[in-house]
Design a protein around this nucleic acid. Structure first.
Lengths: 206, 206
DNA sequence: GTCTATAAGGGGATAGAC
DNA sequence: GTCTATCCCCTTATAGAC
C-alpha cells in the first residue's frame, strides 16, 4: 500500500503520482513516443517504482486509456438518456459538456481516437455503446420529431461540430486561422452557435 | 539513380517502392510506432537501402508528412479560390472532394493531425494558409451573403461534418454504430446531406 | 516502498563486400 | 545499387540492497 492518501497539497500516494504523470505524458505524446523514464521523471519518482506499481508500460497505459474513454462516454451518455429534457436541451448540454471537458484537456479526443485506431482491440468493452445510444431518450425524441433523419448522421454532425475543432487545433493555431490565446473564447462562441445551427438542421426539409 | 522508372506492374524504382511502403506504414502506425524494418519489409528491400536513399527515418517521415499535408490542402484550396462557382457549389465540392479523397485513405486526417500535434514545428511552411483562406473567393462570397457569421466557424463546421466521421471511425465501427462494411455508403449519404444542412445554416437567423 | 545497478533486447544507422 | 553483418545507443524491465 501507499504511504499516504490525503493530507496536503503534496498528498498524493505514489501510485496516484505515477498515474497522474502517466496521464499527462501519454496524452501529450501517445503510447509509442512515451518513455517510462519520462513518466517517472514527471512523477518525481524512480523508474523501478513504475513497474513495482503497474507491472509494465502497457498495463499503465491501458488504465489511462480506459479512464479516458470513460470520460468521453460519461460526458454524453447521461445527457442522451435523460428522459426529462427536451431534444433541444440535450443538444445544448452535449455541446456545453464536451466544450467544458475538452477545454480542460484539448488533447483528449485525438489521443483516444488515434490510439484506438492503432489497436482495434480490448478497449470498447464495458459500455454497450450501440445499445445505449439506440435505446436512448435522445433517439426516441429525434425519431418522433423527424423520422426521415438518420439519427446517426445527426449525432455525428453534432459531435463533429463540437469535437472537431479540438482535433484540428494544431492546424488551426499553427496556420494562424485561430489564435492560440483566443482558442478558448472561440470555443465559447461555438457553445452558443452550435445549438442554434443544429436546431436549424432539425427543422430543415430534406 | 534507380534502375527503372516505368515499364510493367512491378516497375517502381527502389526509391519509390520505399516511399510507397513508408506512406503505408507511417499512416497506419504513426512515426514512433513505425520501425524502419517494417518499412523495408513492406517495400521488399533491405533495411540498409532505406538509409541509402533517405538518410534517416526522420527524413523519410518528413517527406511523407509534407506530401500528405499537401494532399489535404490541395483538396480544398482550389475550390475555395475558384471565383466562378457559387458559395453553395463550393460547399458541395469541398464535401465531395474530401469524401472522395478520404474514402481512399481513411487514416489521412487523424495521422496528419496527430503528428502535427506532437511536433508543433517545421510542417506548416509552404502555403500561407491564413492568407489564402481569408483572401479566398469563398470568404468574399460568405461575407457578402452573411456578414454576421464568423466565416471560420462556418468553415470549421463544414469540415467537422465532413472529416470528423473519418477521425471517429475507430469508435464508430468498434462500437457498432456504423458497420465497417457500410462505412463507404454511410459517407456517400453524408455527401448529399451535408450540403443541404450547411445551406440551411447559411439561411438561419442568428 | 524506494532506491541503484544492470540485464536483455529492440531498433536506427553504417561498414564494407559484392 | 544492393546486400549481410554488426555497432551501439536507448528503453523496458528486474534483481537485490536498504
Amino acid at each position: 500500500m501507499a504511504k499516504r492518501k490525503k493530507g496536503g497539497p503534496d498528498s498524493l500516494s505514489t501510485e496516484e503520482k505515477i498515474k497522474a504523470a502517466a496521464r499527462k505524458v501519454f496524452l501529450r505524446k501517445g503510447f509509442s513516443a512515451t518513455r517510462t523514464r519520462d513518466i517517472a521523471e514527471e512523477a518525481g519518482i524512480n523508474l523501478a517504482l513504475l513497474n513495482y506499481y503497474f507491472r509494465s508500460k502497457q498495463k499503465l497505459f491501458e488504465e489511462v486509456m480506459k479512464e479516458k474513454i470513460q470520460t468521453l462516454l460519461q460526458t454524453i451518455i447521461p445527457v442522451l438518456n435523460n428522459p426529462s429534457t427536451s431534444l433541444e436541451k440535450k443538444i445544448e448540454q452535449v455541446v456545453s459538456n464536451y466544450i467544458e471537458v475538452l477545454l480542460a484537456n484539448n488533447d483528449l479526443p485525438i489521443f483516444v481516437l488515434n490510439e484506438l485506431r492503432k489497436d482495434n482491440t480490448k478497449f470498447i468493452t464495458n459500455v454497450p455503446i450501440q445499445k445505449v445510444i439506440f435505446q436512448s431518450s435522445f433517439m426516441t425524441q429525434l425519431k418522433e420529431q423527424r423520422d426521415d433523419i438518420n439519427p446517426i448522421h445527426f449525432l455525428i454532425s453534432l459531435l463533429g461540430m463540437t469535437i472537431f475543432p479540438f482535433v484540428a487545433k494544431p492546424i488551426l493555431t499553427q496556420s494562424g486561422l485561430v489564435n492560440e490565446k483566443n482558442f478558448q473564447s472561440f470555443m465559447k462562441e461555438r457553445e452558443s452557435l452550435i445549438p442554434i445551427w443544429m436546431t436549424a438542421i432539425l427543422k430543415t426539409k430534406l
